[in-house]
């Protein structure tokens, strides 16, 4: 009989994928059913997937004798773990019914694609033998995880805005004006703008007892997009800075206009535009959602596109 200690890293990945498929199935069901048991099970299965992938990466790192984050397979695994952890936190806090299954689907694509890539462990190149690798790369990947969540949230927002029940309602950016914030407040916490606290609490207790939940407003996804970007943006900025410090130590230059560096700057600028548009407050949430989608496309080019080209100083990240 195989014990846990005998399971190898790839078997842990396969187990994780199975749990992920289970979680996806339950999150699909959750869109139709408000049962808390269903939610907790879906959440737990996803948490189990995180545990499996973390164990897999740990075993791989032990075998490689370094933190296994040096090729596309490993980086996709870490990206997926980051995305799952971020989503688990989001889901725990806000319990958004519409976000679970798209995130699980994206994770399945990400982990599934990773398993098709070469998984051989290679010794590290001289340039990669630095403590900066264990700092710079995870921070960047974590920012990518947040941007992926923001992208999914933007897509849900756009679907709801164009085809959903909200399409005839005025959809405004939360920060785009005071009214947006009030609408959001109203839809989230079941409050009227001014109210008697006692009556409000009673009403809410009754709603909870009868398991009535409000339909998720598109504005919630606008807010989720904003929050994910406001976490991802500083992470990307810090990640780029850490990369600059590493580059200065390894190559004697903070910035070399290497394709990977340049594209990461493009991504940062794209999300910088999103944040400035948000501050400006003159643009609709639809526009902001499209900018977020655009930013994510830039991120994909940075992450995959430049690696496919295999050019520049970051060519060790090339696929295959």
């Amino acid at each position: 009989m195989t014990t846990f200690l005998e399971i190898n890293e790839m078997q842990w990945v396969h187990l994780g994928v199975l749990l992920l498929i289970g979680s996806l199935f339950l999150y699909v069901l959750r869109t139709l059913n408000t049962s808390k048991g269903l939610w907790y099970t879906a959440w737990s299965l996803l948490a189990g997937t995180v545990a499996c992938l973390v164990i897999s990466i740990t075993l791989r790192s032990v075998e490689a004798e370094y933190f296994a984050l040096s090729n596309m397979y490993e980086s996709l695994m870490v990206l997926s773990i980051g995305m799952m952890m971020a989503f688990l936190a989001l889901d725990r806090w806000f319990g958004l019914r519409g976000l679970g299954w798209p995130v699980c689907l994206a994770l399945l694509v990400s982990v599934g694609y990773a398993t098709t890539l070469p998984t051989d462990i290679h010794p590290l190149q001289a340039a990669l033998q630095s403590y900066w690798r264990s700092i710079h790369v995870p921070v960047i990947l974590l920012s990518y995880s947040m941007f992926t969540l923001s992208f999914i949230s933007s897509i849900i927002y756009l679907v709801k805005a164009y085809w959903g029940v909200d399409k005839h309602q005025p959809l405004v950016s939360v920060s785009g004006g005071r009214m947006g914030g009030d609408m959001l407040t109203q839809s989230l916490s079941h409050q009227v703008f001014s109210h008697d606290l006692e009556a409000d609490l009673k009403q809410r207790a009754e709603q909870q007892q009868s398991a009535i939940t409000l339909a998720e407003s598109a504005n919630i996804y606008d807010e989720i997009t904003y929050r994910c970007i406001s976490i991802g943006f500083p992470l990307l900025a810090i990640g780029i800075i850490l990369g600059g410090l590493w580059a200065n130590e390894a190559w004697g230059n903070y910035w070399s206009w290497d394709p990977k560096e340049s594209m990461s700057l493009v991504t940062l600028l794209a999300y910088g535009i999103y944040l400035h548009l948000r501050v400006n407050g003159e643009h609709s949430a639809k526009t902001l959602a499209w900018v977020s989608v655009g930013g994510y496309i830039m991120m994909l080019i940075t992450y995959f596109g430049v690696n496919l080209m295999g050019l520049g100083l970051h060519s060790y990240g090339k696929i295959g």
Binding site: S175, L188, E223, R227
Partner: peptide, 10 residues
Amino acid sequence: TNKAHLSFNK
């Protein structure tokens, strides 16, 4: 609040 309306409402 100036942002994070969701968590502030919670």
